[in-house]
Design a protein around this nucleic acid. Structure first.
Length: 464
DNA sequence: AACTATTGCAACCGCCGCTAA
DNA sequence: GTTAGCGGCGGTTGCAATAGT
């Protein structure tokens, strides 16, 4: 198949991104959405030039006395704005946005719970980093991949666990371990679905679950511990920006883009992370200000977003001593809303009702009652999860569960798998929200979404 | 202080699948 | 059916920061 056209182009910058490039890209995407990535580098510069030209012409015609020494409006354009667009290929722009500039990224070290989750997901999904990343809100596949290769692998080996098969190293050694190639799918393919002890991949898992109820808890576990996070995952902010700025309602097929019409995402920008409540109260707030203490506040006071707000509120606070660095501290990469804009709000703003006038409620209650009516998966009232299934039991199929639990798990099986594969489809929910549907209607919408996702899922697995 | 080794992470490379012409 | 363009993914590399000597 054809390669990316930009790969053939010369004179494109490579290497680390400068703050100026970041700003260009950030400004462009927040104002216009990324659209076609291949056009982003050009547009990121040309739009600025056109804007400048426009205002220069206005300036020239309205205030000629200020430019009497100039013979042409074009002379009013500052030279520094005449630079071309980003000298980057679209692919590079996309990568930079996804892995670094995206406002929903969670910075900082991985928690132990996240690491454990990655290990468990890797046992099921193999090196499908992007799918693993969908279960860890705010984390990118690249980040997870790096963590795996640099840290988790070593830790597992130190514990006597083979990171490829998730089996004890001694057992692997006895079996004259297969040569680990450097091929793309080497690690995931090392997990032999037919081996019986390690769960090779999701495809195998699905086929097995159809016949082997004992595998259901594998998904059931993730349903409780991880899919609940997936449920709470809100669409990337850029989706909203695209929609809010452009106002169109096309439906991109890309999994990373999609319209979110009139969705009150400000109330979802933060969620009560069960990890946080479970372990020392460290709340992992996502989206924008990642100040740990501001989670509950920002989730309830964020007003509707206007394009004007967005266009002026995309500043990035970086660590002052290293502006080019992503920083490792959670505080070092905050994205903020324009606190000077009266239509906007501060993360330290007061609570109460927002400018839409509807009564605010806690994020968790919204999630449980309105947005995610199926969230019977929530932690219990004390913030604790139900007793977890031990992973080794899952791997070896020795788990037994009560019929009632199994029934619940089987009911939710498709939820978990579908969302693992297709990511949660927020579009319909957003549409439902925008239509002010009643709870029962929400349920219907959700049900329909599941049906569609299930169909897509089936097709996907048929093609594997 | 200088050098080397290690680590962490951002970014690139190359391939694949999907889609439209 | 073929081809090209594109987005996306996973593997790998390169480099800056840090630790160790």
């Amino acid at each position: 198949m054809g390669r990316h056209s930009c790969c053939y182009k010369q004179k494109l910058r490579k290497g680390l991104w400068s703050p100026e490039e970041d700003e260009k890209l950030m400004n462009h995407i927040t104002k216009h959405g990324h659209g076609c990535w291949s056009t982003v580098p050009k547009l990121a510069g040309t739009i600025k030039i056109l804007n400048t030209l426009f205002f220069s012409i206005i300036h020239f015609h309205c205030f000629p006395f200020l430019s009497k020494n100039t013979s042409s409006p074009s002379l009013l354009i500052p030279a520094q704005l005449m630079v071309a667009g980003l000298q980057r290929c679209g692919k590079s722009c996309r990568l930079r946005w996804i892995n670094y500039l995206r406002p929903d990224l969670k910075r900082g070290a991985f928690s132990q719970e996240e690491e454990d989750l990655i290990i468990e997901l890797h046992a099921v999904l193999g090196n499908r980093w992007s799918q693993i990343a969908t279960r860890l809100p705010g984390r990118t596949d690249n980040e997870i991949k790096n963590l795996w290769n640099s840290s988790i692998k070593k830790k597992l080996r130190q514990k006597g666990i083979d990171p490829n098969t998730h089996k004890p190293l001694a057992e692997v050694d006895r079996k004259s371990a297969p040569t680990i190639s450097t091929e793309r799918t080497s690690e995931s393919s090392d997990i032999d679905p037919s081996s019986g002890s390690a769960i090779g991949n999701l495809n195998h898992l699905l086929s097995e679950t159809a016949q082997s109820p004992e595998l259901l808890p594998v998904l059931g576990k993730h349903r409780k511990e991880t899919t609940s996070l997936a449920h709470l995952r809100v669409p990337p902010k850029e989706l909203f920006l695209d929609q809010l700025v452009s106002g169109h309602d096309n439906l991109p097929s890309s999994r990373s883009t999609g319209p979110i019409p009139n969705f009150p995402f400000q109330q979802l920008m933060c969620y009560s992370n069960e990890f946080g409540s479970k372990h020392g109260g460290s709340t992992n707030s996502l989206w924008f200000n990642q100040n740990e203490s501001s989670c509950s506040t920002i989730s309830t006071v964020m007003p509707p977003v206007s394009p004007s707000t967005l266009s002026t509120s995309t500043g990035i606070n970086r660590s002052p001593d290293n502006p080019n660095s992503g920083g490792t501290g959670i505080q070092s990469n905050q994205f903020y809303w324009d606190t000077n804009n009266p239509s906007s709000s501060s993360s330290k703003g007061s609570s109460g009702s927002n400018s839409l006038g509807f009564e605010l409620q806690s994020t968790s209650s919204i999630l449980e009652n309105s947005i995610f009516p199926w969230t019977d998966l929530s932690p219990d009232k004390n913030g604790h999860l139900e007793e977890e299934l031990k992973w080794p039991d899952l791997l070896h199929g020795t788990f037994t569960d009560t019929p009632a639990t199994m029934q619940n798990l089987s009911q939710s099986l498709y939820e978990d798998v579908v969302k693992a594969e297709s990511q949660f489809n927020m579009e319909g929910l957003c549409a439902a929200w925008s239509q002010n549907l009643q709870p029962q209607q929400h349920l219907q919408v959700v049900s329909d979404l599941y049906d569609k996702d299930l169909q897509r899922m089936s097709l996907s697995f048929e093609n594997i």
